[in-house]
Nucleic acid binder design. Structure first.
Length: 352
DNA sequence: ATTCCACCGGAATAGCGGGATA
DNA sequence: TATCCCGCTATTCCGGTGGAAT
């Protein structure tokens, strides 16, 4: 059934990118001067998750460094590297200039190293760029004549609105490339492409792929995840072909898997907050905090709790309603079982 | 309209852990 | 080994704001 497992991973780079010709051409054109050794300010790629932003930009950068061996490229996930020192350290590492620098070298020195010792052009993808906390780093990279930034965010307006004016005034003019959700037909083709490469011949029919595409709601990452789960299930059960029924039974499992992955990245405090919201539904900050205080050993400050909540809201684990003093929090719908309001995360969790 | 309250989120500050250095 | 320095997390402080009460 499964011929090549790697191509069924959502983050594996496909051999060709489907339905993104326009964006590929545009971004290639923007980055063209880099090949000729000229300066390029950068570009902003924006659109919902699973729309191919990361995939497309990685593809272009690979092609770029194939074309010109002296152009270096890097991909950085700013969700995990949100601070200036973290980003700069990752960068000097990838371009091999880390000699003599340690984890405790001041960020200023690292930035200077990148400024002084970088000799060839560097194109860097800053994925989830809206998560960057200290925008000084954008300024650092912007004024480095050899560095070109490919910024990725969900919403372009929101991204620029969140920038400090001195950074905003410099970056506001960079070209923006929009990525829309894939249509079901497009997703189906993407899945077919993966299935051809990763599954036995005729293991899955086109109409079955369409069912997956429908369940994924335009998100290629989710779609590929479902395909992998379906294939694994069919393999375990010794099926010759994947049918619509198998898919429907797996969609739920696949959703849970994604959710579980997210939950495992939370710390104790974040999990307790989520747990309370799942059990009690919507509530305001005062209510939520006093319940939280009762439940954990060493409660964090209220400010810290607000920070946690903000982070979880960005993960779409919780939803907020209202502004300022009237704000209410609740667990995201996906976390609460629609049948009878039974909680998916509940008292089952043991917290130390 | 004014005052009070709950809450939001930015900024300054403190404490901790880990690698570097003497 | 003791000490220093840095980045990171958490805490404290505080100005600002919407809504309710007076």
């Amino acid at each position: 059934m499964i011929r090549d497992k790697t191509v069924l991973q959502a983050d594996s780079q496909p051999s060709e990118i489907l339905h993104r010709h326009e964006q590929i051409n545009y971004l290639s054109e923007i980055l063209r001067p880099v090949v000729d050794g000229e300066r390029v300010d950068g570009a902003l790629l924006y659109g919902p998750t699973g729309a191919g932003k990361t995939c497309t930009s990685k593809f272009i950068l690979e092609r770029l460094s194939d074309e010109r061996a002296d152009v270096q490229t890097a991909h950085l996930d700013c969700w995990n590297n949100a601070t200036r020192p973290a980003i700069l350290h990752r960068l000097v590492e990838t371009v091999g200039l880390q000699r003599g620098l340690t984890r405790s070298t001041p960020a200023d020195d690292v930035s200077k190293r990148l400024q002084d010792d970088l000799e060839t052009p560097l194109v860097v993808i800053l994925d989830e760029a809206d998560q960057i906390e200290d925008q000084q780093v954008l300024y650092d990279l912007y004024r480095n004549p050899l560095v070109t930034m490919v910024l990725i965010a969900n919403d372009d307006e929101e991204f620029f609105a969140g920038l400090e004016s001195r950074v905003n005034s410099r970056l506001i003019t960079i070209p923006r490339i929009q990525f829309r959700k894939y249509t079901d037909a497009e997703l189906t083709e993407i899945l077919a492409h993966r299935a051809d490469a990763g599954l036995a011949d005729d293991a899955i029919q086109r109409d079955a792929l369409a069912v997956i595409a429908d369940a994924a709601a335009g998100d290629a990452r989710v779609a590929i995840g479902i395909l992998r789960n379906v294939a694994e299930r069919a393999q375990r059960e010794g099926l010759e072909r994947i049918t619509g029924e198998v898919i429907l039974s797996v969609v739920d499992v696949a959703r849970k898997e994604v959710r579980q992955q997210t939950l495992s990245s939370l710390n104790t405090h974040q999990r307790v907050l989520l747990e309370i919201l799942c059990e009690h539904g919507q509530m305001g900050m005062g209510d939520l905090y006093s319940r939280y205080e009762d439940r954990v050993e060493n409660p964090r400050s209220e400010r810290m709790v607000r920070k946690h909540l903000a982070k979880m809201a960005h993960y779409d684990l919780i939803e907020t309603e209202g502004e300022k003093s009237g704000r209410e929090y609740r667990a995201a719908n996906a976390l609460v079982d629609p049948r009878g309001g039974k909680q998916v995360i509940g008292p089952g969790y043991r917290l130390e």
